[in-house]
């Protein structure tokens, strides 16, 4: 497969260079299992790169090599153009945020102490730590007064996971590694946290390496997706490209029957030739208003919630025009035929 096709060319505009680079990286475990096979990958500054694959595909191994929980058998990994194998692993890890499925909050520490672990290791001042803890708790809508002195066992699963995520953000690290961070949650809480995180992420603009086996989560969270199998990259593309132009039979099989549903997530209004009409604006801009960046599924959702025959499409505060429900349904039918 030619490299150009593999890498995809539709990249995010605000990516101003490579932050993390895998250079011919392989990992063979002592038992002979080849988890990662000659991987070449560049993670751009500010993007969320999803490592997607089934178990055993090498996605977690790839991620754990970044903070040297696992050492590669061959090849080099560069963070900010520095070869990480030369760095002190302890210092390296303190610069990298880490959130995992099991959350791994320390049960004997309060929420505040849990968040403060790395700042403390970096010897921040007390004042600095306390301010940062409050700021982070506010960020995920856990009122600091109420939550900072609680213990993990007094929190719900979703609250714990929020703490797990903000703990990874505590020192404002340049890279955050997330290993199925929402994997252990129930579907409703998971979706809620995904949405919260997307919002959070749009504010903080972090470089995130996100591991998941859930294609919907990958499509939802990722700026780009790397589909891995047997330690090799099967396709590296934006969610839309991955869904619409599978690079190989394997990718097609991996997407399987989900392709139509997935394309409802990846197709946005701006990608489709949709006619907008004139109409009368509602008195109030609704919460889930449409923009040209809204996906088909979000658009359908908006119609379901608002129960109107037409809805305004905004560009920031300006109304571009009105989308008729019948036109939306026609468009969806077209999509159904193309995939």
């Amino acid at each position: 497969m030619p490299a150009s096709q593999l890498l995809g060319n539709d990249t995010n505009d605000d990516c101003s260079g490579t932050l993390l680079k895998f250079d011919n990286v392989s990992k063979i475990f002592p038992n002979g299992f080849k988890a990662v096979d000659n991987l070449n990958l560049e993670v751009k500054r500010g993007e969320t790169l999803v490592l997607l694959g089934t178990s055993g595909s090498g996605k977690t191994t790839t991620m754990k090599m970044v903070n040297r929980l696992i050492e590669p058998t061959s090849g080099k990994i560069y963070l900010n153009n520095e070869d990480i194998s030369i760095c002190d692993p302890i210092e390296l890890r303190r610069k990298i945020g880490y959130a995992i499925q099991h959350i791994g909050l320390f049960p004997h520490m309060t929420i505040a102490e849990n968040i403060a672990v790395v700042p403390k290791l970096l010897k921040w001042s007390k004042r600095q730590i306390s301010d940062r803890v409050d700021e982070l708790l506010d960020l995920v809508n856990l009122p600091p007064k109420e939550y900072r002195n609680r213990y993990p066992s007094q929190l719900s699963g979703g609250q714990k996971q929020r703490v797990g995520v903000i703990r990874a953000l505590a020192t404002d690290p340049s890279v955050i590694l997330m290993d199925e961070p929402f994997g252990a949650l129930d579907p409703i809480t998971r979706e809620q946290l995904q949405n919260e995180f997307l919002e959070l992420e749009s504010e903080i603009k972090k470089t995130i390496l996100f591991v998941t086996h859930d294609i919907y989560e990958a499509v939802k969270m990722g700026d780009r997706i790397v589909l891995l199998d047997e330690g090799k990259i099967q396709q590296l593309a934006t969610p839309q490209k991955l869904v619409e132009n599978p690079a190989s039979e394997f990718v097609e099989q991996f997407l399987g029957r989900h392709r139509f549903q997935l394309s409802l997530y990846t197709k946005k209004l701006k990608h489709l030739n949709i006619e907008l009409q004139d109409g009368t604006p509602p008195e109030k801009k609704s919460d889930n208003h449409l923009t040209m960046r809204s996906s088909l599924i979000e658009t359908m959702d908006a119609f379901k919630v608002n129960k109107r025959k037409e809805l305004p499409v905004y560009s920031s505060k300006k109304i571009l025009g009105f989308l008729k429900r019948s036109i939306l349904l026609d468009t969806i039918t077209e999509v159904l035929h193309t995939v």
Binding site: R93, Y98, H102, G104, P107
Partner: peptide
């Protein structure tokens, strides 16, 4: 818990 230890390690302890 091994996951607790892993997190501690990955936080740079």
């Amino acid at each position: 818990e091994p996951s607790t230890i892993e997190v501690a390690k990955s936080m740079g302890m």
